[in-house]
Simulated assay, not measured.
Amino acid sequence: MRIEYGILVIYNQPIERSSSYATFKDQLSVIVADNSTNEEIRKRNQKQVEKDGNVYLDMKGNQGLSKAYNQAISWIQQKEQKSCFILIMDDDTIFGNDFLQKATQEMNAKQADVYVPIVKAEKQILSPCTIHNGRIKAIHSLLSIHEDTISAINSGMIVSLNVYQKIRYNENLFLEYIDHDFIRQLKQHKYSIHVLQQEIQQNFSVFENDKASAKTRFSILKKDLHVFYGKSLSQHFLYKSILWKRKLRAVIQYKDLSIVWKW
């Protein structure tokens, strides 16, 4: 099994600041889909990525994660005739330099369509996680993971190119829950998922301190949750409860009660 490509979506920052790009720019053919709204940043990123011998895709503004992922996948499908695997990465994920080597060893020992690493934010396990009746919960031990309830975030996910012949990322989702929707599709199509023993560290934006950025993210979350959970009454209740929890967390973090009615 070979991990041949990496997909990285970047937004309004120089590619040199991406820890994951720095790790894999010489190990994989990295397709950088640039969602930056700043044209100067896009020009500099294109110059650097192409200088490194990797592939630059200009999204000409922020088209959202799903469209960027799908465009990168389409590029790979046009170029690649053989079966291979693709590493999905966030720009700020910290991978060990031997991640590919160790992941490949595990993949050779256990066949699957999709592999997910253990993603942590400091000591907290972010991924894999569980999903049951639409409710996503963090885990404290991998023993909590079962085939029918597993979910995971995109960063570090290794996906067979063959999977993308049947499913793609949901372009009705802009930023949030894209990964959980993708896992849901994998299960519907009976694709197998295996949890790797490799650990990576994620600078997850749920922990961000900037209030303005948090408000923008909340607005996107609200729209994406509505798409993910649909219109059923039980799922609508879950959708509302998640939004309220996120609001209350922001009220405590920023000590601003007006968030309750302004966000």
Rank of each mutant, 00 (worst) to 15 (best):
T23P: 00
Y229A: 03
V195K: 00
N203H: 05
H140D: 10
A103G: 10
N209P: 00
W261H: 13
W244K: 08
I150F: 11
I73N: 09
W244M: 11
L100C: 14
L143C: 10
R42C: 13
I15Q: 01
Q27L: 10
K82F: 05
K25F: 08
V195G: 00
Y239P: 01
L248P: 06
I88A: 03
D58N: 14
K215M: 08
S66D: 12
D90V: 02
S155E: 09
E171P: 04
Q27K: 15
Q111S: 11
L233P: 10
Y56I: 14
I150H: 11
E176H: 10
I7H: 01
Q201E: 01
K245Q: 13
L257S: 09
F228P: 02
A72V: 07
N203W: 04
A103Q: 11
Y191C: 02
I15F: 02
T104Y: 07
G61S: 13
L257T: 02
Q48F: 05
H189Y: 14
L142M: 14
N203I: 07
V114C: 14
H132W: 00
K102R: 15
V195T: 15
V49F: 11
L186C: 12
T149F: 05
S74W: 05
K43Y: 08
K245E: 13
S141V: 04
Q63D: 00
N35L: 07
F99C: 06
L8R: 04
T23K: 09
Y115T: 14
L225P: 02
V159C: 09
V32D: 06
D52M: 00
N62F: 01
I73H: 09
P14G: 00
R42Y: 04
P128T: 01
K43M: 07
S155P: 11
I41A: 10
I118K: 02
S144T: 05
Q235H: 09
D26H: 15
S74N: 13
Y239L: 09
S19Q: 12
D91K: 00
Q188Y: 05
H194E: 15
L8I: 08
I167A: 06
T37V: 15
H194P: 02
Q253N: 06
I131Y: 03
D148C: 01
I139W: 03
G134C: 08
G61A: 10
Y164H: 15
Y191N: 05
L233W: 12
I136T: 12
I76L: 09
V114T: 11
K79T: 06
R135F: 08
K247W: 11
S219W: 02
E50L: 15
I86L: 09
R184Y: 05
G96C: 03
W244I: 11
I158H: 12
F182T: 01
A121E: 14
I158Y: 08
R17P: 01
S18D: 05
N70F: 12
R168P: 01
R135D: 12
S29H: 11
L87W: 06
Y69P: 01
